[in-house]
Design a protein around this nucleic acid. Structure first.
Length: 588
RNA sequence: GGGCGCGUAGCUCAAUUGGUUAGAGUACCGGACUGUCGAUCCGGUGGUUGCGGGUUCGAGCCCCGUCGCGCUCGCCA
């Protein structure tokens, strides 16, 4: 037996005349000097309760305060004509209370439990139990559950086996810092919390599971952003004997099912495939927002013979010059344009050059450097029409892309070209196997060191590694949506000799890689099948599906930017006894 | 680790740019009102201006430090 017979969201005109008992939170009491109207809320909705003066129920209700948890018994009846609330599913009826009971009083809440909340994230996170009582947050959690259920069903239906992998494990090779857990039994030794189940899922392929997936918790000890939490959830997938298209099909089927379940949206697979080089050329970024055009235009050749020294020198010295037409932004103020330059500086550039397209031709800071013919050429190259703003970046390729890619998204935001409700996904494929760390100059794996090179012949691979490693292709791919990276994956290395060769190239000594990955290398020697997979972020999928500004609203109990949990107070100091148990001494 | 922003009543904000007793809305408390649904009307309580220093006759406002929250670059797939 439940304390209630119905929820606060289910009573309709058809229940009229029935006796009902509801439980929920008091959203407010309207006192007319006689009759009280109380809105009673639970997860399912809000129902109006009427208390007539003189009744016992009315006496109890006079004690009701905001967010009290109460139980009310009464009769469902149609509202008098003219008092129907059209905005509420239960608006045709009300419950005429015969008895009431306060299950639990409430302190005055620090903020109102309302859909449109205007308060700091600090308060919301401290009182997360109140924040999560709000409808938008419950919608978010429910959508998340719907999403993972859709994904699970789709993958299970395709023969994928859900397997759990350890949380206490060994440091994984992704570049991020590990969260460490000291071992009590092994003084001075540590587990790492998984950055991803990467190696375990490869091991599962070697074990013959053939198709694996997991709704996997991943933890990375790096600085946070609005779109980044220290612990997050990925749909982790791995298959044996796949071509990339097989992995993509599994991902497409699962994410599409998730979006259908959670948001009623069809993502229209298959998603287009854009090679990495093409993405960089057209958008300057490997996670382009494809909801709008405004593609970058290469002006390097033009610049080699142009009158503007900044462009000419960039082009002559092996750099690039790229333009973008912020169509319709010609009316932006000098201040707004200066802000774009600052944006460029923030992203490592020196600023942006700009030209306005006006009735009288091109004008702006750099117009004087171009003769009429050059102006015409520029305008044609960028398809400039009157009222457009043309922006330019010049310099080495990396810097220009680092500015122009994010700038395109920024312009899209300002011009309203990134509306919620449209979902454009694409596979970014053919990543180079390595990329240069801009700080140290060292070559690092673009994805991780297990991504298969396009060349699996050891002799040819070695030759490529020695001659021109940056030109070496990898079999990795990303999935992007609306300018966010949803996930990445690859066909893996399934042979020990190739894997060792890659480790060596990355500067790991035999001793080192044996110590870190010896178990994987050994497993590869026991008939490891060719395999590959993918992992994509649940939190991001939910945030994008709901149009949330922050990942925090897609997670029940998120951390602050400083990785604290304001509700529990984690992290915190522990007792000396706990520290000595695990053989740890702090050195603050 | 760096840059920027914010921190004033439970909450959201203001305070004529350093000047008398720090205000408003809302919430809360009390009163009035029998059909409201952001109820309405009247009255009231409520402040270590995040914290610690400094400058000044005088600091919510200026300076230094510190803590918290957010955005961001680095970092991170």
């Amino acid at each position: 037996m439940s304390l209630r017979t119905h929820t606060c969201g289910e009573l309709r005109a058809s229940h009229s005349g029935q006796t009902t008992t509801l439980c929920g939170w008091v959203e407010g009491r309207r006192d007319h000097g006689g009759v009280y109207f109380v809105d009673l809320r639970d997860r399912y909705g809000v129902t109006q309760i009427v208390f007539e003066p003189g009744s016992d129920a009315h006496k109890v209700a006079s004690e009701f305060g905001t967010e009290f948890n109460v139980r009310v018994t009464g009769t469902v009846r149609l509202r008098p004509s003219g008092t129907v609330n059209q905005e509420r599913a239960t608006g045709e009826i009300e419950v005429y209370a015969s008895s009431a009971e306060i299950l639990n009083a409430s302190k005055v809440p620090p903020f109102e439990i309302t859909d449109k909340l205007d308060t700091t994230s600090e308060l919301r996170l401290k009182y997360r139990f109140l924040d999560l009582r709000r409808r938008p947050m419950q919608r978010s959690l429910i959508a998340r559950a719907d999403f993972t259920r859709g994904v699970r069903n789709a993958l299970a239906g395709r023969g994928f086996v859900e397997v759990e992998t350890p949380m206490l494990t060994k440091a994984t090779p992704e570049g991020a810092r590990d969260y460490l857990v000291p071992s009590r039994v092994h003084p001075g030794q540590f587990y790492a919390l998984p950055q991803s189940p990467q190696i375990f899922k490869q091991i599962l392929m070697i074990a013959g599971l053939d198709k694996y997936f997991q709704v996997a918790r991943c933890l990375r000890d790096e600085d946070l952003r609005a779109d980044r939490q220290p612990e997050f959830t990925q749909i982790d997938i791995e298959m044996s004997y796949p071509e990339p298209q097989d992995v993509w099909a599994a991902v497409e089927a699962s994410i599409t099912a998730g979006y259908r379940e959670a948001f009623g949206v069809d993502l229209n697979p298959p998603f287009p495939r854009i090679p990495y080089r093409e993405a960089m050329a057209r958008f300057g970024i490997d996670k382009p927002d494809l909801r709008f055009g405004m593609e970058l235009v290469d002006l390097t050749e033009f610049s080699k013979s142009c009158g503007f020294r900044v462009f000419r020198e960039a082009a002559e010295q092996g750099g690039i010059v790229r333009g973008i037409n912020a169509s319709g932004a010609g009316g932006w103020s000098r201040k707004e344009i200066d802000a774009l330059s600052q944006f460029a500086v923030d992203h490592g550039g020196k600023g942006v050059a700009w030209l306005r397209v006006t009735d009288a031709g091109l004008d702006g800071s750099i117009a004087k450097f171009f003769d009429d013919g050059a102006k015409e050429a520029l305008r044609n190259a960028l398809a400039g029409r009157v009222g457009d703003l043309l922006l330019f970046g010049a310099g080495d390729e990396t810097t220009v892309n680092n500015v122009m890619g994010p700038l395109r998204h920024h312009l899209g935001d300002k011009l309203g070209l990134r509306p919620f409700g449209t979902f454009k996904l694409a596979w970014i494929s053919d990543f180079p196997l390595f990329e240069k760390n801009t700080k140290t100059g060292a070559l690092e794996p673009t994805n991780h060191p297990f991504t298969a090179p396009s060349e699996m012949n050891l002799a040819k691979l070695s030759a490529a590694l020695e001659s021109n490693p940056l030109s070496l292709g990898g079999r990795g791919y990303d999935l992007v949506m609306n300018g966010w990276e949803l996930g990445s994956g690859s066909i893996r290395i399934h042979r020990r000799d190739v894997q060792e060769r890659i480790f060596e190239f990355l500067g790991l000594s035999r001793r080192e890689y044996e110590m870190k990955f010896g178990f994987l290398l050994e497993a590869l020697e026991y008939g490891a099948p060719p395999h590959g997979g993918f992992a994509y972020g649940v939190d991001r999928c939910v945030a994008l599906g709901l149009g949330l500004d922050s990942l925090r609203d897609a997670i029940a109990f998120p951390k602050t930017q400083a990785a604290s949990c304001l509700m529990t107070g984690a992290p915190s100091t522990v007792s000396d006894q706990q520290l000595s148990d695990i053989h740890v001494r702090t050195v603050l």
